[in-house]
């Protein structure tokens, strides 16, 4: 099973692309861990010392902010989409 991971232009130079197809088996929590393990250069920018998303990094799972989920222990399904965004407030 594969899911689509997209990330913003500021991170495009890290892997030389704006998106990835990743193995999405298991839960969202496991998917986050898999991203960090398999793509450590990208993981460095998405996750902090706690293993969670950095304070100003947002991740949308099929359009839902993952911070609004009661838990990251939700099952991923074929075709799911994760979109990374930068939390921006004001100008």
């Amino acid at each position: 099973m594969q899911i689509q991971l997209e990330f913003p232009a500021a991170l495009a130079t890290v892997l030389g692309m704006r998106g990835l197809l990743i193995d999405g088996g298991g839960t969202l929590r496991e998917t986050f861990r898999r991203i960090a393990d398999e793509y450590p250069k990208l993981g460095l920018h998405l996750f902090d010392e706690s293993g969670g998303l950095r304070e100003h990094v947002l991740c949308f799972w099929n359009g839902t902010n993952t911070r609004w989920l009661p838990s990251l222990d939700v099952a991923m399904t074929e075709g799911d989409e994760l979109v990374i965004m930068q939390a921006a407030s004001g100008g």
């Binding site: 500021a10 991170l11 130079t13 890290v14 450590p40 250069k41 460095l44 920018h45 998405l46 902090d48 010392e49 706690s50 293993g51 950095r54 100003h56 990094v57 930068q86 939390a87």
Partner: peptide, 29 residues
């Protein structure tokens, strides 16, 4: 470094091609 995406280290020999290191100094959780 980025206020959003944190710090990283980049290596280059010619300032044309850069390679981000997979590891960086980090504090334990």
């Amino acid at each position: 470094a980025s206020d959003v995406y944190g710090p990283a280290l980049q290596r280059t020999r010619d300032f044309k091609e850069f390679e981000q290191l997979e590891s960086s100094p980090a504090w334990p959780e």
